[in-house]
């Protein structure tokens, strides 16, 4: 995700993004609604109603339909992300490895559950029902661009405290090129 001011979506950027999405007929246009939303969601971390309207207009459909998709598919957010974004894997390897304790601890210590942002806007948490694909290091989280594995609630708290205290962009153990991490 680009480091935009949280809470804002630059609609000119959205217009520029959708202008690259071309189609030959109305069927193809409909097939591209999800794609357009994914691009926007990847770029800004969420999709606002105004952005959804731009997508609807570009692809010849209604904002209702577009918003209906935004609220159905788990990957989309309709509210801004906090300064840090963490995926908590709750796939079966991570469950067997103790991810429930992580989820419970986040609720207790930070007051956040799936999809929530801390009151100070520092952290957004998303609990992933699937598998992040690094099961041999379960339980695992992906905080911004870095993975952290074999976690206990204490270790996760340390990781979070370090990230929140550090300036953004530092503290990356294993960085991934954003191009790869965010191809949609």
């Amino acid at each position: 995700m680009d480091q935009h001011a949280p809470g804002q979506i630059d609609l000119d950027v959205v217009r520029e993004m959708v202008s690259h999405i071309t189609y030959s007929d109305h069927q193809e246009a409909q097939e591209l609604i999800l794609h357009a939303l994914q691009e926007i969601n990847e770029h800004f971390g969420w999709v606002s109603l105004e952005a959804a309207e731009i997508v609807a207009e570009h692809l010849g459909t209604t904002a209702n339909r577009v918003y209906g998709l935004l609220t159905f598919y788990a990957d989309f957010r309709t509210e801004p992300r906090g300064r840090h974004f963490m995926l908590v894997c709750h796939g079966m390897a991570c469950y067997v490895g103790g991810s429930t304790a992580l989820v419970d601890d986040l609720a207790e210590r930070y007051g956040v559950g799936d999809g929530d942002t801390t009151a100070d806007g520092a952290l957004t948490v998303q609990v992933v029902d699937g598998c992040l694909g690094v099961c041999d290091r379960a339980p695992i989280v992906k905080l911004d661009d870095a993975y952290h594995g074999q976690l206990t609630p204490e270790k996760l708290n340390d990781v979070l405290q370090r990230a929140i205290a550090a300036r953004q962009g530092e503290e990356r153990v294993h960085g991934i090129d954003p191009h790869i991490a965010h191809v949609s």
Partner: peptide, 23 residues
């Protein structure tokens, strides 16, 4: 085409609806 993180979209008919840009 890419999905949006809903397990049910692996079911055959749901997957096709998803491709067609509906829930």
């Amino acid at each position: 085409r890419t999905g949006g993180g809903a397990y049910i979209c692996g079911e055959g008919s749901a997957l096709m609806y998803s491709i067609m840009g509906v829930r």
